[in-house]
């Protein structure tokens, strides 16, 4: 018999993790739009978000302060990757495949460095609001879930305002549309590339900080998150930040429903089926790809 409250719970959980995928997917889009690069080090930013916050919290730094420091640190890591890995290749007009390989290598380097520094044991963070979950129609809504939804919505709105209303945001959009024409207006495209890495890394860090209390973090969680975020970006329409968020929700929901109806072993199969379905039926994604 259909258990509606369990189904509702499943959907809620799926949307919650979908928000995380969406934020990671937005990170892919922001960098892709500014540079045409698919950055597979995106997962490392998510891992570092949870991991650095964990280290700071274990040093008795208050959670909010730890989160703020982490976001700044990870954004800096993003800029460093851009400077020492991506920029030299970009200047030499390296192909997309070379870029993907280089950013994957950067991801592995960060993973291994994290393994050496903090070890291989999973780490977790306390929930941001330590109260019993709210109950609605038999569905338990944890405060961490509300943090994930709330932060995601705030970030989506903030990013929308940034890209639509600020000159720098418009300059980044201009780079996405036509890099040469943007340069002709005096926009230093390379600065926009660095900014896009900082922004994407910051988003990844926020995703990592949000999700760690509900799951765990470890040196090797980055790659699965990167793959899910990448799928979200493709499903949403590659290069469309809001599309990536919708793609993330779709993916999270599909995974959750697969777990509900078929068992947890088929979660990844569901994710890849969603990807294949979109590639076959609507390759440009939900909102249509940006390029």
């Amino acid at each position: 018999m259909l258990d509606l409250s369990f189904l509702g719970q499943t959907i809620l959980n799926g949307l919650s993790v979908g928000c995380i995928y969406g934020l990671i997917g937005i990170g892919f889009c922001v960098i892709y739009n500014a540079s045409g690069i698919v950055n597979f080090a995106q997962g490392a930013f998510v891992m570092l978000g949870g991991m650095i916050t964990y280290v700071l919290v274990s040093l008795n730094v208050p959670l909010i302060l730890a989160a703020a420091i982490t976001i700044i640190c990870v954004a800096l890591v993003g800029v460093i990757i851009e400077r020492i890995v991506v920029r030299p290749l970009w200047d030499r007009k390296a192909t997309m495949f070379v870029m993907i390989l280089a950013t994957l290598a950067a991801q592995i380097v960060i993973e291994r460095a994290t393994l050496i520094v903090v070890g291989d044991q999973p780490k977790s963070l306390p929930v941001f609001t330590d109260l019993p979950p709210l109950r609605l129609f038999g569905i338990a809504i944890g405060y961490q879930t509300l943090w994930i939804f709330g932060t995601s919505i705030v970030l989506i709105i903030a990013l929308g305002l940034f890209f639509q209303k600020t000159l720098v945001g418009r300059a980044m959009r201009a780079c996405a549309i036509n890099r040469e024409a943007a340069a002709l207006q005096g926009i230093q495209v390379s600065h926009m590339l660095a900014l896009s890495f900082a922004l994407s890394a910051g988003l990844g860090a926020i995703a990592g900080i949000l999700v760690t209390p509900t799951q765990f973090t470890a040196f090797n969680v980055g790659t699965p998150f990167a793959i899910s975020g990448f799928i979200a970006a493709i499903v949403g329409g590659f290069g469309r930040p809001f599309g990536a968020f919708l793609g993330g929700l779709t993916l999270g929901l599909a995974q959750a429903l697969a777990v509900y109806s078929l068992g947890s072993g088929l979660k990844n199969m569901a994710a890849l089926s969603v990807l294949l379905l979109f590639l076959f039926l609507r390759p440009s994604g939900i909102l249509g790809s940006a390029k």
């Binding site: 418009r170 959009r173 201009a174 549309i177 036509n178 024409a181 943007a182």
Partner: peptide, 10 residues
């Protein structure tokens, strides 16, 4: 530039 280079969606 040739082809105008305007930012079409903007």
């Amino acid at each position: 530039p040739e082809g105008r280079g305007i930012f079409g969606p903007m």
